[in-house]
């Protein structure tokens, strides 16, 4: 009877899990495996997969000696770091500002912040291209009116990547702010009440109650923000095409250019697979740090 029930349960588990597993295998595992397989070949994409030329790990070896790949990797790293150090503190501050004060218009402010995330990137990138126009663009004009010499934004290798970071921060902060607000709703009021009874003021409550109890949310935001930043493509493609002087060539753009413009799908796949490894490593580090912290707190 027990054995029969066990078989039945296993059968049910298989029946319920199979559709989801099939989708995961088909749309996640297979493309990843295929990408790795292509990365071991030379392939222009004009021929069937069966006619690819075997290169072994040659594409990966080429990447290690490619200044262009290392430049793209470096640009991506700078972009990610700038996005994280700007977006996460800003989202936390805005989230608390929009959650704690009992003021009217909070819902409207949240909607306005979130709207930047909803607007398609392609459409809004074109608008930002016009805003960033050197000398005659609105931002340069406004700075000029204040007596400030405006940088050339996207037209200068020194500021082009930073300009894309500003665009990213403008677009994504609202989304992360909403996540912070969602996290804040999970902190019980009585914790703050206890803190106040103990004499904790605003700053003490922020650093000893709010931020520690938001740690899981913050970890999630850091992870998502890092992944989103690593995968940045649309604004680069639309606004700068990786220029000027390769200053905004990030990995995702380099992958697209290698595969679709230069017909080097093998090299592009090697870059894509390397990017996947970077993403996995970043996620692993963040999650491991979170687990260590949680385990340490469990012991104390």
């Amino acid at each position: 009877m027990t054995v029969a029930r066990g078989h039945a349960r296993r059968g049910a588990a298989i029946a319920f899990l199979s559709p989801a597993m099939a989708v995961i295998v088909l749309f996640v595992a297979v493309p990843i495996a295929l990408t790795f397989w292509i990365s071991l070949h030379d392939w222009s994409m004009y021929t069937p997969l069966t006619q690819m030329t075997w290169r072994g790990l040659g594409n990966y070896a080429d990447l290690l000696h490619s200044d262009d790949f290392l430049n793209a990797l470096g640009n991506t790293l700078v972009y990610v770091v700038l996005v994280l150090v700007t977006t996460v503190p800003l989202a936390l501050a805005l989230g608390m500002l929009l959650y704690f004060p009992k003021t009217a218009g909070k819902a409207a402010a949240r909607a306005a912040l979130f709207s930047t995330y909803v607007i398609p990137t392609v459409a809004i990138a074109i608008v930002w291209g016009a805003l960033y126009a050197p000398d005659y663009g609105p931002i340069s004009q406004a700075l000029g009116a204040l007596g400030i010499d405006s940088p050339a934004w996207l037209s200068d290798p020194e500021t082009a990547l930073l300009s894309l970071v500003i665009f990213h921060v403008w677009q994504m902060t609202g989304y992360y702010t909403i996540l912070v607000i969602a996290g804040l709703t999970q902190i019980p009021d009585d914790v703050y009440e206890a803190a106040r009874i103990d004499g904790a003021g605003f700053w003490r409550q922020t650093f000893s109650v709010t931020l520690p109890l938001l740690r899981r949310t913050t970890t999630f935001i850091v992870l998502i923000a890092a992944i989103n930043a690593i995968q940045v493509f649309d604004p680069v493609y639309i606004l700068t095409q990786g220029g000027p002087a390769e200053s905004t060539t990030v990995l995702s753009y380099a992958i697209q250019r290698a595969a679709f413009q230069n017909g080097m799908a093998g090299q592009a796949s090697a870059m894509a697979f390397s990017l996947l490894l970077v993403l996995v490593a970043v996620a692993g580090v963040v999650l491991a740090a979170m687990r260590r912290r949680t385990a340490a707190e469990g012991r104390s």
């Binding site: 291209g129 126009a133 050197p134 000398d135 050339a152 996207l154 037209s155 200068d156 493609y237 639309i238 606004l239 700068t240 095409q241 220029g243 000027p244």
Partner: peptide, 13 residues
């Protein structure tokens, strides 16, 4: 150089 950039639509400064 700051007056030279183009974008994906082959328009721009």
């Amino acid at each position: 150089p700051s007056m030279s950039s183009a974008n994906a639509n082959t328009t721009g400064p």
